[in-house]
Amino acid sequence: MINNENVKVEIRGLRKSFGKHEVLKGIDCDIHTGEVVCVIGPSGSGKSTFLRCINCLEEPTAGTVKVDGNLMDENAKNIDELREDVGMVFQHFNLFPHLTVLRNLTIAPTLRKKMGEEEANKVAMELLARVGLADKATAMPRSLSGGQKQRVAIARALAMRPGLMLFDEPTSALDPEMVGEVLDVMRQLAGEGMTMVVVTHEMGFARQVSDRVLFIDQGVIAEEGTPADVFDRPQNERTKSFLNKVLEA
């Protein structure tokens, strides 16, 4: 099933340091088209940095990240085009507060894809309907709840029709009662075959939705496998102790 032809992301020897502190200490990983990969691990283990290296929000100190065979490099001329294909959803939503919900969705398609306003609006309305927020099109982001903001943020990323979606702890800043509505949208997206990399603390989601789980600890992939492998039969002591801590709580 998995072969080189459907490799969406190829990560080789990825290292990232902030000053003297090395956060990622050599990561090799392939992510395949249609695959849902959840990344779990303790705080400060480098999960988010790993994710942010995929669309080059962080520039690797060493090693390479390729998406569809294209090197992700901040100084590359085509980096903006490469990023168009990689949607990202942030912990703190990062909606554009000065733009309406609809314009949050249409700004990138109209500026980047030279899509006409009418067409962009149509696409945006379809996406808002999909995340259950068609009635909020003219609202400003500040009037939305956290869960609604995050659903808009997902729709905004989808408006560029990306082939890959990155989620950086998308439910960590939400009140508990709003986590479900965001996870439902993500579940639906996974069901439609979207390639997804999800950094999360939602173990239930990771177990249920992902094809593969990566456990990152101290800057390396300490363990990986199917959810059943990682959650039910962890081999690594650090994985065991991490899971004991999070699943007990």
């Binding site: 669309n55 903006d80 949607g87 990202m88 942030f90 990062n94 990138a108 905004r156």
Partner: peptide
């Protein structure tokens, strides 16, 4: 907020 720049760049804006 630096997150604004990151969000915009992640969408492909120059």
């Amino acid at each position: 907020d630096p997150g604004q720049r990151e969000a915009a760049r992640s969408l492909g804006l120059s």
